[in-house]
């Protein structure tokens, strides 16, 4: 039971922060199917930074960890600018743009990983090894039954995510920027008439989605995968999109959705282990979150209220 919670949370939280990124983008009116690519690109930049810091400058693993997250945030945000540019400036179809951003992220990061490994380190390798992050247990609280599991074997990134999520929530619902952002997704004409710069708000919102996805990608790289490689693109970005859809584009219900995924996954693995099934069966467990997503979407998509101006190209000059 405890390990279900421990593994569940370490999967839930990255998913959640990425979904918040998606909410930022979509509440501002930009459809964002690019989360998958954004998290991969963020993880790649972060992993590269950490790898260089450790191997070229002798930085200790512990500090490199935080450096990795910093660069993942920057990398995700910068790469997200491409999506913003395409959707806002070049008025591309937002769905197509998202798909393309994903394709480009996959090919570019894998290509660069290989090229850099070969050129800089003389190794024909398609991955950047990171190792699994250390984990911490809060003494005392962790002894409480069930609840204590939330404080046992916690990755440091889980703390980063909780803090970032709270900040993101606060900015979205309490600050002027959040008010402006949500206005852009409902009625950009109203926002424009109120003197807001719709394009700029949307641009920053998409960048925020990149930054938060970067955190998510880096977290996956430091936990499930212990490296950066093409394997990182397993569709978690799309899982978080599914989560935010049936969280109705609001932050708290989305957390609930992410938890369902996280716990379904960890419980499934636990089941395979306890039943002593061969490893091939874990392939079947892997589909659990996806199947669950589909089933949940069946119930929640019907009357789902997406932001009203989602996906529309906003053109001031059009009469």
């Amino acid at each position: 039971m405890n390990s279900i919670i421990i593994d569940g949370m370490s999967f839930t939280l990255p998913l959640f922060i990425m979904a918040i990124g998606g909410i930022y983008s979509e509440r501002s009116g930009i459809t964002n199917l690019a989360l998958e690519g954004l998290q991969g690109m963020g993880a790649f930049i972060g992993a590269l930074a950490a790898y260089i810091a450790v191997n070229c400058f002798g930085m200790p693993q512990g500090s490199a960890y935080y450096l990795a997250f910093l660069f993942a945030i920057i990398g995700g945000a910068v790469y997200a600018m491409l999506h913003a540019l395409l959707c806002i400036r070049f008025k591309a179809n937002q769905v197509i743009s998202g798909v393309v951003i994903n394709l480009l992220a996959t090919s570019l990061t894998v290509f660069l990983t290989k090229s850099i490994n070969k050129a800089a380190f003389g190794a024909a390798s398609n991955k950047i090894d990171l190792g699994v992050s250390a984990r911490y247990t809060v003494p005392g609280i962790s002894n409480i039954p069930v609840l204590g599991a939330f404080f046992t074997d916690v990755y440091p990134f889980e703390l980063i995510i909780v803090a970032a999520a709270f900040l993101a929530w606060f900015v979205m619902y309490r600050t002027p920027y959040g008010l402006h952002l949500r206005a852009c997704g409902d009625n950009p004409h109203a926002a424009d008439a109120a003197g807001l710069d719709v394009a700029r708000i949307r641009f920053t919102a998409v960048m925020v989605s990149g930054a938060l996805s970067g955190i998510a990608g880096m977290s996956f790289a430091y936990s499930i995968f212990a490296k950066f490689s093409g394997d990182l693109y397993v569709g978690y970005g799309f899982l978080s999109i599914a989560a935010l859809i049936f969280g109705s584009w609001t932050i708290l219900p989305t957390l609930g959705a992410c938890m369902i995924f996280g716990f379904a996954r960890s419980a499934g693995y636990q089941l395979v282990q306890m039943a002593g099934l061969p490893s091939a069966y874990s392939d079947l467990i892997m589909i659990l979150p996806y199947v669950l997503t589909l089933i949940l979407l069946m119930f929640f998509s019907k009357n789902n209220q997406s932001p009203r101006a989602l996906g529309e190209v906003y053109d001031k000059a059009r009469r």
């Binding site: 199917l33 769905v95 798909v99 397993v234 569709g235 799309f238 999109i241 599914a242 859809i245 392939d283 079947l284 892997m286 589909i287 996806y290 199947v291 997503t293 589909l294 979407l297 069946m298 119930f299 998509s301 019907k302 789902n304």
Partner: peptide
Amino acid sequence: FNINEVVSSIMLNYIVEY
């Protein structure tokens, strides 16, 4: 069910793959 075809087809991609 009004499920966005992009999301459902990606989910089905993974399900089939595994």
